[in-house]
Write a protein that binds this DNA or RNA. Structure first.
Lengths: 210, 210, 210, 210
DNA sequence: TATGAATGAGACTTCATTCAT
DNA sequence: GATGAATGAAGTCTCATTCAT
């Protein structure tokens, strides 16, 4: 798939360039990153990048789509095993926070550059990102159907709210040097906020409050 | 404080430049905006901008700090009248969504550029943004103290989660042309999600569910 | 006219750039000339060129149009004083050959680059060059009307033939170092070839053979 | 002579590359043509071109010399049968205009690129082109000797004039879409212009005016 | 204070050429 | 011989910033 480049080694070289781009973009941001830096980090010549990507924009977009695609596939797999909407929601949240650790650079790039690209790159529709949101939306829909979630829940809004919360907390995690909490712990807190809300009003038995 | 630069009409000119910057930045993004475009939009010469701002970065930062400062002042005033933490939370959320309409350009800039700046501008601490978060944190603290909110609530996490949700929904509102819901309506939905959570588990009486 | 640039000195700077472009283009050809070389030759910064010309192509085109415009104006003036079509033809030819000496660089550029541009620059119509041809066509038309020239003369072809002959001889003059003949002398010879033809067949009285 | 490079099919491959170069150069011009485009058009790999030609310049020069060589040989053959200088001149002119149809691409390349190369390629002497001019010069010399042409005719100038006229008319033919005249007809007109001149002054017997 | 022409460093990208296979 | 992926030098153009007026 996408096998331009030399015999066999091509895909590997392409991957090396993508990895280098993630590293450099996450360190300096898209606009402050120079193509030559990425080339150096990937151990290829400047021109080689243009054998695999149309231009610098395409490098960023490919990065989004391909890496987000992997993320979507993974989270879908995990959720397939989830026992009920609440369990799935928890898995989704935990997975997202876990990505912060496993794929720190990628997440940083997505967090800070996706918005820009989203808004300013002509004709770019972040397909894979929307799929990611759809996974979340699917969980909420299922929860509404089986009565786990409120029947009047607006799924479109809720899924954005949950993603936004996860994203902002991820960002804080990345920005703030002194990490006050572990991602895993944050995951639990976020889960509770969304599952049960902020209020203390006694819930007979916190079914959700595992 | 706003009186750097020239005498007399200076403050007005400075304000014109800031407004022009908001307009251009929100349309094209910080990196795609040219100082000369901002100058033209403000009706001043390119060089004039440098009489009021140190450089292009400073223009963005000043914009953040000064405009966010006004936002913080305003929301504090409104909240002062709030009757209890839940009411305050609602006011905060409604005000934020309302800003989307009243200050669309500013919000767009904050949403898409604050992250970049935050991460890549050396030595920039987004003081006013942190104050905005503190307003939210104050509400949560008060709610914990008076028993409205869960005693084990992690305020640091919760305030980021709420802000993230608001921010993401604002972003969707800005990005997606076909606005599916009004800001006011979205505000109510977000409020409910955070106040009561997603779950259907019957709450005797939705104290929060206004 | 075309007075971008600084107060007053703008036109002069523009002219300096055009002169430098003529010099460099004539020495190295359009494609082998670097914008930075032209800038250096003009005594301006690289970027300054882009204040006066849209891009490198525009520099070449402007050069063609503006300088050819001056040439057209000049030859028209001279011809206005010509006494009859033959005299005018002679003036035109002499003027062209004379330009080789007075405007060597310009003529070299026109000779070697006009063809390229003509053919490969999208949307470029060499207006002033066509006017130059029209001046020649006008002489031929007048000569047909007053019986000086053959009534069956195809003006379109003849004017191209005359221009082609002049142009090729100019080119040879420019290319060949050892200049075997003076332009003035060549002018007379070309004039005779076109006026009387190559043949020896006795003409009663060489009206043309001044 | 044409057998540099590979064995067997080598000459054919070399010819394919030359033909492809003519096609691409005539469409886009030398500087706008990419070696890879020529390779693709020839159905060979980029690197293969370098087995047959030293570099891109050499490709152009080889093209000139080899193809012009064929043209020179052909016109010499045709002229050998000519009956007298005037007939030979006519054959030369007709052949040149005819080439426009038979070898359109080649002629276009020669017209627009020869001048450039001539002037800017170090050490390139267009041998075959000079031979072509010599064929024309030979005709004129013969005509002077046998009294057909004026005894004071400057052959160097006249041959350049004739070639220039042919070349410019060819160029116009190629550039202008709406071809107003057929090459054959233009040949006759050019012949008359040079044989008899432009003037109407009655020639006893139009020996030349076939 | 205000101007805006001028500057020039620097980035993206192209493409002729090479060479390991 | 043939290939075509890889190279990397080099050029055009942009634009933040300056400074003489």
């Amino acid at each position: 798939m996408a096998m331009r480049g030399p015999r066999g080694g091509g895909a590997a070289k392409r991957e090396r360039i993508l990895r280098a781009a993630i590293k450099i973009f996450s360190q300096k941001g898209f606009f402050n990153s120079k193509v030559s830096e990425i080339a150096r980090a990937a151990g290829v010549a400047d021109g080689t990048i243009y054998l695999y990507f149309k231009n610098k924009d395409d490098l960023l977009i490919s990065l989004f789509e391909e890496k987000m695609g992997e993320v979507v596939t993974e989270v879908r797999d995990k959720i397939a095993n989830g026992d009920g909407p609440l369990a799935c929601l928890r898995i989704f949240i935990e997975n997202h926070m876990d990505l912060l650790v496993r794929e720190a650079g990628l997440m940083e790039v997505i967090q800070v550059e996706l918005r820009q690209s989203n808004k300013f790159m002509k004709e770019y529709v972040p397909v894979k990102f929307l799929e990611y949101l759809d996974v979340l939306g699917g969980i909420l829909d299922a929860g509404k159907k089986d009565g786990t979630f409120r029947p009047d829940l607006n799924v479109k809004t809720a899924r954005r709210a949950i993603f936004g919360a996860l994203d902002e907390i991820s960002l804080a995690h990345v920005l703030v040097r002194k990490r006050k909490y572990e991602p895993a712990k944050a995951a639990t807190e976020i889960y509770r906020i969304f599952a049960d809300g902020l209020c203390a009003a006694a819930r007979e038995k916190g079914g959700a409050t595992t």
